[in-house]
C-alpha cells in the first residue's frame, strides 16, 4: 500500500468525514491545539530560561525541571492528539504541505536536543543545580530548545496560510 493510498483512506475514514462535516469541530480541535501549544511553550520556556541562567521561582534547576516536565509532557500529548485529528481531517493536504513536513522535522530536532540534554548535562545536574550561570552545555541546550520551539510555532502558523484546503 503506497503512502498516497494510506493518506486517501485516512481522508475517507468516518472520523475524517465527521470532522469535515461538522463546521464547529475543526475550530474546537484547533483551539485545543493552540491551548496545548501555549502550555508546551509556556512551561518549557521557564525551564529553558533557567538553563540559560534566568532565575525561576526556585533556586534548584533539578526540582524545577522535575515539577514542570509533567505539564510540558501532558500538554505535548494533547498537542499531538489534537494535531493528529487535524491531520485526519485533510491527510493528503497536510502530507503534501512543505511547512507541515518542516514542522515535524523541527519537532523531532527539539526532541533530539532534549534527549541529548537528558543523557549528558542533566546526568550531572547535582554539580550545577544551583550554580549561576549554568554550564555552557546547559545554556546551549536551553537556547537551542527555545529557538526550535519558536520555529515550530512560526512554521505551524504558516501551515494555515499555505494548506491547499482552507476551511
Amino acid at each position: 500500500m503506497s503512502l498516497q493510498t494510506i493518506l486517501q483512506s485516512i481522508q475517507n475514514s468516518g472520523l475524517s468525514l465527521w470532522i469535515r462535516q461538522n463546521p464547529a469541530i475543526f475550530p474546537i480541535i484547533e483551539s485545543l491545539h493552540v491551548v496545548a501549544i501555549t502550555l508546551v511553550f509556556g512551561t518549557i520556556m521557564i525551564v529553558d530560561l533557567r538553563l540559560l541562567g534566568f532565575a525561576s521561582h526556585r533556586r534548584g534547576a533539578n526540582k524545577l525541571i522535575a515539577e514542570l516536565l509533567p505539564f510540558t509532557w501532558g500538554a505535548f500529548i494533547l498537542a499531538v492528539a489534537t494535531g493528529c485529528l487535524l491531520f485526519t481531517a485533510n491527510a493528503p493536504a497536510y502530507a503534501n504541505n512543505t511547512q507541515f513536513r518542516l514542522k515535524l522535522v523541527v519537532i523531532l530536532a527539539a526532541g533530539i536536543n532534549m534527549a541529548v540534554f537528558h543523557v549528558t548535562t542533566h546526568r550531572r545536574i547535582a554539580a550545577w543545580d544551583t550554580v549561576m550561570p549554568p554550564p555552557t552545555a546547559a545554556r546551549v541546550a536551553g537556547v537551542t530548545s527555545l529557538l526550535l520551539w519558536v520555529a515550530v510555532i512560526y512554521i505551524g502558523r504558516w501551515i494555515g496560510f499555505t494548506l491547499d484546503i482552507l476551511f
Binding site: V34, V35, I37, T38, L39, V40, F41, G42, T43, M45, I46, H57, L68, F71, V150, I153, Y154, G156, R157, W158, G160, F161
Partner: peptide, 25 residues
C-alpha cells in the same frame, strides 16, 4: 500577518506559562 500572528501566539504562550505557575501556586 503570519509573522505577527506567530508572535501573538508566542506571547500568549509566555503569558499562559506564567499564569499557570502563578495561579497553581
Amino acid at each position: 500577518i503570519p509573522t505577527v500572528q506567530a508572535v501573538h501566539i508566542l506571547s500568549i504562550a509566555v503569558l499562559v506559562g506564567s499564569a499557570l505557575v502563578s495561579n497553581l501556586r
